[in-house]
Amino acid sequence: MTVIFACTFPGGAAIAGDTLMHNPETNERVMNAPKVLNISQRVSVAQAGSFSGTGEVWSKLEHLPRHSATPTTIAEAIRSFATPIYQRKCGEGPAAMRYIVAGLEADGTPAIRWLEFDANNFGEVTGPCQIAALGTISNVQEIANRALHESLKPSSNFVMLDQWCKRVVAAEATASPHAVGFPAMLIVMKDTTGFGKQVGPEDPPDPAYEVYWP
């Protein structure tokens, strides 16, 4: 398992996840690897759950046409690619497969879509100032909401996305140190540009990751 989360803001979206990989049978840490895939400057995907045997989904997503990708088309593709894999994995034992897709739709509307196969939870939110989170603890959505408001610059309507990312991962890492850990990966997508970076537990705020939050 891991923690993945996203938010939308006027004119864009952000998506993030931790990078720790662990052995689900022994809970031992194995390695760090990115769990966020940038499809284009307008849409990205984050994956959580059982990673063994799911690399085919990632590989197919990497080869989709980038110029026409939107949160809707990518979410539909994931559901098509991942459903048979999830069904096969369930035949082998308990399995968890979760994805969050965030970015801008064709008309410029920011959107988040999630696919939580193990809970049969498939949903979406559109428009600015939306948040979605999937993690190891039951109140991760509440944690992500609170962390964002704690990441607002004092007396302003600007949120520091890198500090938001740091707070969410830190809370999950405290609760599930075997499954969640730094560095985190954060990607920001706007209409004309996309950029990202690794976020460490001690990183100071970076002005490039401040966005308007009305």
Rank of each mutant, 00 (worst) to 15 (best):
D18G: 08
S44R: 06
G91I: 09
F81W: 04
G17E: 01
A96T: 14
L37A: 12
T72Y: 10
T19R: 04
T8F: 10
C7Q: 08
A69C: 07
I100R: 02
I78P: 00
G53C: 01
R79G: 12
G17M: 06
H63Q: 15
I85V: 15
C7E: 11
P71T: 10
T8S: 11
A48N: 05
S44Y: 02
I15K: 06
A75D: 03
M31T: 14
R42M: 10
T54E: 11
E62Y: 00
S59R: 14
V57E: 02
P84Q: 06
F51A: 14
V36W: 01
V57L: 04
A13H: 05
H63D: 03
R79E: 08
A48Q: 12
V45M: 04
L64W: 03
A46G: 10
I39H: 05
G11C: 09
G12Y: 15
A14L: 04
G11K: 03
M97W: 00
S80P: 00
S80M: 03
T109Y: 13
V36M: 02
V43H: 06
V101N: 08
Q41H: 15
L37Q: 13
T73L: 13
T8V: 11
A33K: 13
P94S: 13
A69R: 05
H67V: 11
S50L: 09
P94K: 09
I78C: 06
E105V: 09
V43Y: 02
